[in-house]
Amino acid sequence: MGKMLDSDILSASVSQVLEDAAFIFTEEATEDLQWKDDILKSTIRYEGEESGTLCLAVNTLLAQNVAANLLGIEQEDEAAKSKAEEAVSEILNIVCGVFLESWLGKSNHCRMGIPSICAVSVNQEQEAFRSARCNAVLEDEEGNRIDVFVS
């Protein structure tokens, strides 16, 4: 029988990866935290002993910050803007590996798919977040909202 999935595993996985890979520090937040900018939602499928879709939603400001920190450039640089979507997808890819190991252990038999990303409205994001099997909200030091959930 697998470990119980809970929001702490989700938030800890995102927090660890954002800190280690992109030098972005986060803390847990509540669902009433407002979105500050347009939303990008990245998703990745995992299949095996457990199957589902892991989703990470951030605003474009945070996405650009992630890209800038990964590339070692300023957030205002054009490359940070053009690479923002790819950066969020890469972060989710890493989060998924950490999440599956934290949840199911190192000997899990889950294979990960390829992450994809798209823009979503606040209403779309709220609906998907609230109907998820498990979810968590975090915020970065600038107060930008980060949603992570499993559907």
């Binding site: 890819n93 890493i94 998924c96 590996g97 950490v98 599956l100 190991e101 190192k106 000997s107 899990n108 038999h109 889950c110 294979r111 990960m112």
Partner: peptide, 8 residues
């Protein structure tokens, strides 16, 4: 270098 880290 990979995100996948299971024993398989």
């Amino acid at each position: 270098i990979s995100s996948e880290r299971n024993e398989d």
